[in-house]
Simulated assay, not measured.
Amino acid sequence: MDKLPLLMTASISTRGMQGACFTDEEREKMYMDTLLFYRNELLTEEKYKIVFVDNSGWNLSSITSYVEGNPSIEFLSLNPADFDVTKGKGYNELLLINKAIENSVFIKEAGGFVKVTGRYPIYNIKYFIDYASRFFERKGHLYIDIKDHKLYDRLGLGWCGHSADVRLFAVSVPFYNEFIGNRYIELNDYKGLLLEGLMFDIVKPMINRPDIICRFKKEPHFGGLEGSNVAAFSFSKNQDSLKGKLKRCFGNMVRLFFPHFWF
């Protein structure tokens, strides 16, 4: 069975975007290391493919040479003039995905993709690609993870218990074009209009549709460093730190023993 291509979204140069972390050179190294991990993890089998898309105008020659021109990796470099850094990450990421769908041969052939934030690896990515690919073969259209609970509200913490995790999701091109793609214009990180909230609002009314899975059976194993700071006890800048490991272990237990508590 052919697998859905892995779409790595990338903005190597921050171009002065407010709140962006790390220098351009540090970010390039993170993307290179993550791409190398996915190449070694996935491309030993011909069924997997990777689409690497950057929207910052960064010279990709060092990255392409790093993976030795592998034919199962497609590189797209988008015109940075088409993007608006004053609106933050979510607006530009959806716009990037729109342009990836328009230009990627691998995505057009597959009719869908597994989207990941390209700067840091997901160590158990093969599980999610395989699961999504099987689901889409059975006419699935969206595979995403949302949290939807009132625990934070009841504890008076002020944290959001209702959002989608947009670091990893799979979607068919028809579903994306119909429900998601044109809504990038609604997003502005600096006005609190975040992609995590938009995707939750899109998914929540559809949770009973048979072509949608909105809760993963296991936790993604994220590596690398988060690009933001969050005022939450469970937050860890180093995603594979001891706190990150404990959070992932706890999350897997909740998913196994309390599958209807979407924490």
Score class of each variant (00 low, 15 high):
7 L>V: 01
10 A>M: 05
14 T>F: 06
21 C>T: 12
22 F>G: 07
26 E>W: 09
31 Y>A: 12
35 L>P: 01
37 F>P: 01
39 R>D: 12
39 R>V: 14
39 R>L: 14
41 E>C: 15
42 L>W: 10
42 L>M: 10
43 L>G: 09
45 E>Y: 12
45 E>H: 15
50 I>H: 00
51 V>I: 11
51 V>G: 03
52 F>L: 13
54 D>Q: 07
57 G>M: 03
66 Y>S: 15
67 V>P: 14
68 E>C: 13
68 E>P: 13
68 E>M: 14
72 S>T: 06
74 E>P: 00
76 L>F: 02
76 L>D: 01
77 S>D: 08
77 S>N: 08
78 L>S: 02
89 K>V: 05
94 L>F: 08
100 A>E: 07
101 I>C: 04
104 S>E: 01
107 I>F: 05
109 E>L: 05
115 K>I: 04
119 R>V: 01
127 Y>I: 02
137 E>D: 15
138 R>A: 15
141 H>E: 06
143 Y>Q: 02
145 D>F: 05
152 Y>I: 10
155 L>H: 11
160 C>L: 12
163 S>D: 05
164 A>D: 09
171 V>H: 00
183 R>S: 12
184 Y>P: 01
185 I>K: 14
189 D>A: 03
189 D>T: 02
191 K>V: 14
192 G>D: 10
194 L>T: 03
195 L>H: 04
203 V>M: 07
203 V>H: 01
206 M>G: 03
208 N>W: 14
217 K>G: 15
217 K>S: 15
219 E>C: 14
221 H>M: 14
225 L>K: 15
225 L>Y: 12
226 E>S: 13
232 A>G: 08
232 A>N: 04
232 A>K: 03
236 S>V: 06
238 N>G: 11
239 Q>G: 09
243 K>A: 00
245 K>T: 09
247 K>A: 12
251 G>I: 00
251 G>P: 00
252 N>I: 00
253 M>V: 12
255 R>W: 06
256 L>E: 12
257 F>P: 15
258 F>Y: 07
260 H>G: 15
261 F>R: 07
261 F>H: 08
